[in-house]
Design a protein around this nucleic acid. Structure first.
Lengths: 122, 122
DNA sequence: ATACACGTTGAAGTATACTTCAAGTCAAGG
DNA sequence: CCTTGACTTGAAGTATACTTCAACGTGTAT
């Protein structure tokens, strides 16, 4: 699979994929005549990257995690700890977002009430 | 209320509060001998800023919203539209986060299973 | 064979959101 | 009086995550 196809499928840009690779998150991806050809393993990895990124991990943290992954089974406990910590943080983030959404909804209700009064006055 | 007290209460730094004010999000806050003294209205506004920021609005967008708010009732429909759009976006964001958290949980389960097998082998 | 689409690289540029710094003011306590 | 600590300002610096650029290579269609 070539870079633009991957970019489209995963809703990111080709430069971003190259950037991820340069940062050591992805690949090195196999080249055919110098052109990247993403395999199943690359796509699985990309899937993981998008997942933990959405969960709040930075590029640097993902990079470190990938590096540990590449060290093999010796790092498995540490990796598990990192992921569990990240899960915990993500849940906090999730709770805060839920709270802010509730808050926003209330503010919208307030503005709506105000809007009605303004409309009546006109 | 002085800047450090506000910063502590809202879990952000004094420079951030000054930055927000410089960006036109907050204030202008009243000064007593040149020192900021945050009033109830300022704190309400800060509360709003933190809410919509958590919901995904950028500083620039909040700034524009505040500017519209300061234009008065004439902008009320537009403001309501912006907030409703933001609520919609936040819910999408919330759904994506929930999905990524599920995804992460699965990955953790996988690593755990692998960890068990590695431990047995040792 | 030549144009066009799509790929490559390294380097520099951009956007966002702060943070840090230097230099100074001011009120309270020893 | 003078030091200490918290505040002020404008300007410059930092971190993160990309994006854009320039110059060039390659495979397919006309």
């Amino acid at each position: 699979m070539k870079i633009e196809a991957v970019a489209n499928q995963y809703h990111l840009s080709a430069p971003t994929l190259r950037y991820y690779e340069r940062q050591g998150l992805l690949g090195p991806v196999q080249r055919v005549n110098g052109v990247r050809d993403y395999g199943a393993a690359d796509l699985d990895r990309l899937d993981f990257i998008i997942c933990v990124k959405q969960c709040g991990m930075t590029i640097r943290q993902i990079k470190q995690f990938i590096a540990m992954y590449q060290q093999g089974d010796a790092t498995i406990n540490e990796r598990l700890t990192i992921l569990q910590k990240q899960l915990q943080d993500s849940r906090i983030q999730q709770a805060q977002l839920a709270q802010s959404i509730d808050h926003l909804q209330e503010k919208i209700a307030d503005v709506k009430a105000l809007q009605t009064r303004v409309a009546e006055r006109v």
